[in-house]
Write a protein that binds this DNA or RNA. Structure first.
Lengths: 338, 338
DNA sequence: GCCCATCGTCGAAGCGCTTCGACGAAATTT
DNA sequence: AAATTTCGTCGAAGCGCTTCGACGATGGGC
């Protein structure tokens, strides 16, 4: 492996000049620059990342802490990761992948040993133990999610409250007045990831604002969970004409169940789902849905990191507007149901 | 951030002694070691990764090159990634995540700039352009997959040929003689990922060996693809009593189709699927399946990397034995069908 | 009781880069 | 025409660690 010294010799300049050609931090004459670049190309020189990090205190690496349990939501996590890696590369950074399992220790390890310039964490819990640890780091961090007290730490997420509101707006606009929410599994609420609550709160507030009769229920995974959730919803509020489904895995069994019990979508029951677009369109009925904009969120997280690294101002809470895409699962309520 | 010098002063020893305490490469007396460790703990010292990499030419990082397109197979990819990260951590290494999109350039970039000690790549194509590049690197690499010419590069994968054989063995053992293969989508064949071919070859060979009448067909995604695939299979071989499905996304629509056309599983048609366990058990019928042991493959890939880094011998082609798990989708063929 | 190996520690060199201050030459100002 | 800036480059220091050779102190073998 050639070093910067080899390049310098080959180009007949000093190593510092090569460095300045590379970084552009000082003016270098066109001819010198050309000679240096030729030497770089010819020797196939690549600066040694460790040496660079040591000298400049910059690694050009950011950590991504992802929930790598083999869990639900896998596709969404993957979309986040993809977006983060892609965006990071566009800023000439690489991504070190950590699992959430390592907890506080993992975060501190990579930060203290100066492996990364910044961190992006996903799947934050309400009172996430890692947050106080993050505050102590010299590296900035950006959260994908919205824990309770994130003072001083930038957060990016979908505005789940607004998403709930948008779903109800849409259904109310189609004349629906009795609406059920098929919520995430109790495990999600238990895990204290706040998006479930934010959605629920938005849902309840919008119900009031719009004068709707609504009923909500978490939904265990699997056909049985869906069955019992629907039974509960129906029992608590007769004459449901629409469902909001904030539970990706429930979608399929739910449609099966509705089909089996002779409730047609959208003729008898309208549905708005909160899920990735491809899930919405992979169902027997193309579902009107609110996308989880994982790509946008991931990209924004990286942009925020870059601003922080540049010492620029950032908004500490950035909640992305939901966007509802109409497909085939909502219909104007028929007169007979009003 | 305290440095090794700070620790040395606090412990009243030289920096090199601290280093030897850390690495264990030279004997250090118990008292000195204790004093040094106390100083490390008290100061909260963490060695600077860049400095360490520079001095030792080891980064303790491995690159994982994953296909991060938002594609099918996402869960499997995630399982690989999870296994790799977890296993790497158990060897005190971290993982730098690259996308396959960067191609040869990405691989060369991280290798030449000495960001990683080794690479693990997934989703290799038959004549993958990255392979010649990998051969030129000073870092070793391990492939998850089996491209055509991988001389000198370690590969780890499921033995898809054996998997096909195992599926047919199982069905033949249940008396089935007329069996169809629902293959991957044409796109997969086109992408030249070799597992599809390896499976197909194994399937055809086993058909002959077991004296079976078989027919094979790729299967486009979606309900329509499944319909036309089944139509083709039925047309080419009447009286099919069993299906082998090597196509995760086709599974669901296939079961729907069979149901809709009144063919019961397993009463009228037995099924063996090649897919992750959780997919097999998420279907209306619990499917007898051959798992893609992503976790084992990922772990083995990391172990292989570690052996290579230690200069130990490795097997250059490691194909994991498939294991078939019986569930509810296969049945002894009834007399009337023989 | 002498020689040699081993143990435990230190000092110094060096890994490959960035960055700061310096300095002559050229350009600009006054 | 003198004074000042700017331009383009260099040399040297230093980032924080590992590692090699050296060296005094022990200890075992004979």
């Amino acid at each position: 492996m050639p070093t910067i010294n080899d390049v310098a010799k080959a180009a007949g300049v000093s190593p510092s000049t090569v460095s300045y050609v590379l970084s552009g931090r000082r003016p270098i004459s066109a001819e010198t620059r050309a000679r240096v670049q030729a030497a770089i190309a010819e020797l196939g020189f690549h600066p040694h990342a460790g040496a660079r990090a040591l000298a400049s205190s910059k690694t050009n690496v950011i950590a991504l802490v992802a929930p790598l349990r083999v869990d639900v939501n896998v596709p969404v996590i993957m979309q986040f990761a993809t977006a983060v890696v892609t965006a990071a590369r566009s800023y000439n950074h690489d991504v070190l992948l950590l699992t959430k399992d390592e907890g506080t220790a993992g975060v501190e390890r990579v930060a203290h040993s100066t492996m990364v310039d910044a961190l992006i964490l996903m799947d934050l819990e309400r009172d996430d133990l890692r947050i106080p640890a993050l505050r102590r780091l010299k590296q900035p961090s950006v959260l994908i999610g919205l824990p309770a007290d994130h003072t001083g730490i930038a957060c990016v997420d979908l505005d789940f409250g607004a998403a709930a509101r948008a779903a109800l707006d849409h259904l109310a606009g189609h004349g629906h007045r009795r609406i059920g929410l098929v919520g995430p599994s109790p495990a999600v609420y238990k895990r204290q990831t706040t998006y479930a609550d934010r959605f629920l709160t938005g849902f309840l507030e919008a119900s009031v604002d719009l004068g709707l009769q609504t009923v909500t229920h978490p939904c265990e995974p699997g056909a049985e969970g869906v069955r019992s959730c629907m039974a509960d919803l129906d029992a608590e509020l007769a004459g449901l004409t629409a469902l909001v489904v904030h539970n990706e895995e429930a979608l399929r069994p739910l449609l099966d169940l509705l089909h089996a019990t002779g409730r047609r979508v959208p003729e008898d029951v309208s549905i708005v789902a909160i899920c990735p677009r491809d899930v919405a369109t992979a169902m027997p009925v193309n579902l009107t849905s609110i996308d989880i904009p994982a790509h946008d969120v991931g990209t924004l997280a990286v942009e925020t990191v870059m601003r922080l690294l540049d010492g620029r101002r950032v908004e500490y809470t950035r909640l992305l507007e939901p966007s509802l895409v109409e497909r085939d699962s909502c219909r104007e309520i028929s007169a007979s149901h009003r």
